[in-house]
Computed example of a mutant assay.
Amino acid sequence: MDNAKIFFQSNLKFLRNRKKLGQDDLSKLLNISRSKLSALENGQTKAPQPEDLITFSNFYKISIDSLMKVDLSRLGELKLRELEAGNDVYMTGTKLRVIAISVDANNNENLEYVPVRAKAGYAAGYNDPEYIAALPKFSMPNLPKGTFRMFPTAGDSMHPIPEGSDVITQYVEDWMSIKPETPCIVILKGSQDFVFKLVTVEKNGYFSLKSLNNRYKSYSVPGEEILEVWKYYKFMSVLIPEGEPDMHEIRRMFIELKEKLNK
């Protein structure tokens, strides 16, 4: 069992005092009772409800992860101002790690390719320079400035992009810059695979993951469960994407089905 210290109660009191608010004033702003606020600040509530965590996270513009794990009272003034401005390390995705890359003889970044056989180990080796150096690599003309990587896809959740396509992606450092429903490769903690989805960053620090294929349901994951986000740039495939059937084709199929039912 992880015995990491939880700073939630002390952080609530620290942040309230920092804003120079009394418990009465803050409870009115948050639309909660003063007794509940006092219980949360004094640690009398051992398991805060998810809605309470979201309420404080939204009000202070600090992620739930930071509210729980970081002793905010020990941070410097500059860092506190960054947090209060919404530049939370867990919200933006910045400073989570230094990305491992490889370069060519001219010190230009390579485009690394994660083959199918290496997919299962990527979540463990994504920040290991030796693992990245061992990946197949090549250069591609006309790529814009940035860090790029290619990932293989599986399944039909992003139809009409064909199954088995290779998706070229650009590394996203600031997750809050992602526009709603941006196609991305998302690397999840503890996963033996990665997902290719339409990504929307929600205000509560969760990421909504949606498929192009509406047969698959959307779902959300907390930002702290994400290791990397790579924004879609283009895909490569030996297959031509299937077009949507036109009305004449649909009518023909309907007539054939009707004839079969009549027989």
Rank of each mutant, 00 (worst) to 15 (best):
K189I: 06
G155V: 09
V167Q: 03
V201N: 03
Q192I: 10
A154C: 13
Q170E: 15
G205V: 02
K203T: 05
T182R: 11
W175A: 06
K203V: 03
F196R: 05
S157K: 04
N213K: 12
W175H: 14
P160K: 10
W175T: 05
E202D: 09
T169K: 02
K197S: 04
D193H: 11
P180E: 10
P180G: 12
N204G: 06
I187Y: 12
K179Q: 15
F194C: 10
P152N: 08
S191F: 13
V172D: 02
P180I: 10
E202G: 02
K197I: 02
S177I: 11
D174V: 12
M150R: 06
T153P: 11
H159T: 15
S211T: 09
M176F: 11
L198M: 12
V195S: 06
V186S: 01
A154H: 14
S191N: 10
T169N: 02
D156A: 08
G155Q: 09
T200L: 07
F207I: 05
F207R: 00
F151V: 04
V195M: 12
S208V: 01
I161D: 05
V186C: 08
P162I: 10
S208W: 01
D156Y: 07
D193W: 08
I178P: 08
S191I: 04
P180V: 09
E173M: 14
K189N: 13
H159L: 15
I161Y: 09
L212E: 13
E202Y: 02
P183E: 04
L198C: 07
P152I: 06
E173K: 15
F194N: 06
D156T: 10
F194A: 13
Q192A: 13
V199P: 00
Q192V: 10
K210V: 02
K179M: 14
G164Y: 03
I178W: 08
H159M: 15
K179W: 12
S165I: 03
K203P: 09
S157R: 02
L209V: 08
E181D: 15
V186L: 06
K210F: 01
G155P: 07
